[in-house]
């Protein structure tokens, strides 16, 4: 038997986050020392990559901006190529608190049937997170829809603060939604019969940079995600076994 300890990877997507990425990497090293850190520089035009590397993270520099989905997927590919047991997404803007990773890991270890642990802002009643009413309403709508579809309680489907096991890493390395991936990913997990649970977390407001979801884009966000959910529901999925690979538009053959 091999008693190698579990390996953990923190995937930090960052697009023009030079002001906060070093802080995130350093706080990961202090608060979650068991995690290796890979920063995905999503085609930044500032010195995000240099600051992340100086802070001691492995840095993957995408040649141009792929958007959050493509960036995080690059992280999953990295995790898969390096054989990590668990990978967590921790945003480069300082919104996610590295110290909270411990509770995600704890929840993951408590039940081996769980593939993804999601940090939720809303699972605890009266959580401290304050978002504009319109945004909370949107999140609520998707939460209701996903809860109904997956017959599990989903309260925060837009949270990117998640811990994934090997099965989930393999699934998402092969097929991860592009634009606004979090909501659709929950549906994908359900379709592949992977289990996700939520644990309560606190989230900060962004340290610097701007959210990818501006006011003008929020309508597009709602429409795009709704369409993705609808199409995702109607897509025929030949899933024989848990986490079996599915055909995607551009199929990959292994990772080099």
């Amino acid at each position: 038997m091999d008693f190698r300890p579990d390996s953990f990877l923190a995937i930090v997507p960052a697009y023009n986050e030079a002001g906060s990425v070093a802080g995130v990497v350093e706080s990961l090293r202090v608060e979650a020392p068991e995690f290796d850190v890979v920063v995905i520089d999503d085609g930044s035009t500032d010195d995000t990559a240099a600051r992340a590397a100086a802070a001691g993270a492995a840095v993957i520099r995408l040649p141009f901006n792929l958007g959050i989905g493509g960036a995080v997927q690059a992280g999953f590919l990295y995790a898969q190529a390096h054989g990590y047991d668990y990978a967590a997404q921790v945003d480069g803007d300082g919104q996610h608190e590295p110290a909270e990773l411990a509770s995600l890991v704890e929840a993951m270890r408590a039940d081996p049937s769980i593939d993804v642990v999601c940090g939720s802002r809303f699972v605890a009643p009266g959580g401290g997170y304050r978002a504009p009413l319109s945004r909370r309403t949107g999140i609520q709508l998707f939460a209701l829809a996903l809860s109904a579809i997956s017959r599990q309680r989903v309260t925060d489907p837009t949270s990117g603060f998640r811990l994934y096991n090997r099965r989930a890493i393999r699934l998402f390395a092969g097929d991860y939604p592009h634009d606004y991936p979090e909501v659709e990913a929950v549906l994908l997990l359900h379709a592949h019969r992977l289990r996700m649970i939520e644990v309560p977390v606190e989230m900060h407001h962004r340290n610097s940079g701007r959210s990818s979801i501006t006011k003008s884009r929020s309508l597009y966000y709602m429409v795009k995600v709704s369409l993705a959910l609808l199409v995702g529901l109607l897509r025929r999925r030949v899933v024989v076994e848990r986490a079996d690979p599915v055909p995607v538009t551009a199929p990959r053959r292994g990772v080099g």
Binding site: I60, Q73, A250, R252, G256
Partner: peptide
């Protein structure tokens, strides 16, 4: 165009991983 965008994304990811 959708297919090309998908293929370009895969290439970008692989290139970035190789460079790393």
């Amino acid at each position: 165009a959708s297919r090309l965008a998908d293929e370009t994304r895969v290439l970008a990811q692989r290139l970035a991983l190789l460079e790393q």
